[in-house]
Structure formats: C-alpha cells, structure tokens
C-alpha cells in the first residue's frame, strides 16, 4: 500500500499527487516512471515521476484523468492509498550540458517534461521552455518552470493565455534565429505534436529527444506490448526508453497502436470518448 499524502486539482482533470514511496523516491532519476495499479481488478498505468523527495520518502505525479483508470486514481483522496506502485522504470534521461536547449511540452506532456527541465537546468543548460494547451485552464506548471528557464513561452489554441496557436510556432521562430537556435530539443506531448517537432528539427539536424507513451502492461520488458519502431528496429519503450531520438521514431505506428483499445475503452466508459482529444494520445 502506498499512502496518498496530498492530491491537488491543478486544472480540469489534472491532478498533482504526492505519494509515499520511499524506495522509489531514493532510486529515481529524471525521465523515469512508475506503474500504478489502484486496486484489485484495475489496470496498470504508467505515470512519470515528476519529482521526488528522498528525505521525506515521497514522489510527485501529475495525472491527467483521461479514461476510467486515471479517473479512479485521481479520485483517491489524501490519507487514502494506492495498492500497487512499482518503479522507477525506464532509462534515465541522458543529461549533458548542450548549451542552449529548447524544451517543448504539450498538455500533460508538460508534467513529463518538468523533471527533464529541472535536470537540464542543474546541468547548466540555458533553456527556452515552450508549453501549450487548448486553453489557459489547461496550462500547467508555468510557475514552477519559470525559475528553471531562461525564457518561458506559453501558447493556447484559443488565445486565452500567451501566444494564440500551437507550440510549434514559437519553436519555429527559435529555429530560424541563428542567435537563439538550440543545440538540443526535448519534446513531450501528444503524438502529432512530437511528430511535428521532429519534422521541424530534422533539416537542421538538431538533436531531438521525445518521450513516448505507448500502452504498457508490466513496464519491465516482459510482455512486449509497448513496442515501438525506432529506425529499423523494434524496441520496448518501457526498458529501452521511454525517451528516443525523435528523428528515428515511427510516430504513425505509435499513434496507431495507441488506438488499439479505443473501442473497448469507449464502450466500457462512454465518458472517455470526449476526453481523448485532449489526452496525451
């Protein structure tokens, strides 16, 4: 049992949850995730460890409730508990001092991005962070990211905050400016966003790293369900990733495989359907 220490609503369907998991808190590195299973009969859900406090023995998760399982998880109040939590899983982010780095986050991808920005800043990188969402209420972690970034740019599709449009337009400006062009780009968000970023940086051969979110079961390399295509190879995202060289990722296959259970999930939980559009898929 893993105790829920706190559970805050940050935005619609977006929760910040602090859990007691001392061993995970001690072992975790930026870029890693945990598998969470609320109770008997429930799914195993991969969630990024956004932050950890080894001394307090706690980890922080940002959870977007997009389907039945994530909704049940975020419904657990402080003082309650999660039955199973295993990790840290996946490879840690390769952090070096590139110099100038652009970090791009879309939707809940910003939560996955947050620990990377923190580690990159600690390694001395100068960071332009670009975060986006459909509307101002869906912009998360802006306050936390500001002190870590040289510049923080916000975009919203409806123009309610920052630049109106997608994260890709300020990134385009950056790439076009020889003074500001980054040596590396990190992008986490919906698959179409990561794909667009990869296409933008390909021509200039800027090292670009994305964090992939395929469906996972065990998270330990045992089932093969999370397989992704990287270059000409099939890789297991849970052990070989979740971060990969964006220029080698087959994004179409990833989004296709993410849709495998869409019919089943929406049949079981009709409510989920309208949320998928805003989800991390």
């Amino acid at each position: 049992m893993f105790e829920v220490i706190s559970n805050e609503v940050l935005a619609e369907n977006l929760h910040k949850m602090v859990l007691s998991a001392p061993r995970v808190a001690r072992a975790r590195k930026p870029g890693q995730f945990v598998m969470v299973r609320l109770d008997r009969g429930e799914e195993r859900i991969p969630l990024t460890i956004s932050d950890a406090d080894p001394a307090a023995g706690t980890i922080t998760l940002f959870i977007q409730a997009i389907g039945a399982s994530t909704r049940k998880i975020v419904a657990t109040k402080a003082g309650g508990s999660i039955r199973d939590l295993a990790g840290p899983l996946g490879k840690e982010t390769r952090i070096t001092n590139w110099g100038r780095v652009a970090c791009v986050g879309g939707g809940v991808g910003t939560a996955v991005l947050f620990p990377l920005v923190k580690a990159l800043a600690e390694a001395g990188n100068r960071i332009t962070t670009i975060i986006g969402g459909r509307s101002s209420s869906l912009i998360i972690l802006a306050d936390e990211l500001t002190p870590l970034s040289d510049t923080l740019i916000v975009t919203t599709e409806d123009g309610t905050l920052g630049i109106k449009g997608f994260v890709t337009s300020p990134l385009g400006d950056l790439l076009a400016d020889p003074e500001r062009v980054p040596q590396a780009v990190f992008a986490v968000g919906p698959v179409p966003m990561m794909k667009a970023v990869a296409e933008m940086t390909r021509k200039q051969r800027i090292e670009t790293i994305v964090s992939l979110n395929p469906i996972m079961i065990d998270g330990t390399g045992m089932c093969g369900g999370c397989r992704v295509r990287i270059g000409s190879e099939t890789r297991f995202a849970c052990v070989d990733g979740p971060e990969f060289d964006a220029h080698l990722v087959d994004f179409d296959l990833l989004s296709d495989r993410l849709s495998i259970y869409r019919k089943e999930e929406t049949a079981a939980h009709p409510l989920a359907e309208c949320r998928i559009a805003g989800g991390i898929t």
């Binding site: 079961i217 390399g221 045992m222 089932c223 093969g224 397989r227 295509r229 296709d256 849709s259 495998i260």
Partner: peptide, 25 residues
C-alpha cells in the same frame, strides 16, 4: 521473461500479441 519476437513483417500490427502479453492480460 523476455519475449522473443518473430522478426517478420507486420509484427507490430494491431492484434499481434507476444504470448506473455496475451497471457498476462
């Protein structure tokens, strides 16, 4: 517990399972 993949075209199509995933589910 490490699935050996078939290494033939189409193994990442939807509806292709490694035995471990199918049985674990």
């Amino acid at each position: 517990g490490l699935p050996v993949m078939l290494n033939i075209p189409g193994e990442n199509l939807k509806g292709v399972y490694a035995a471990n995933e199918f049985l674990t589910r």
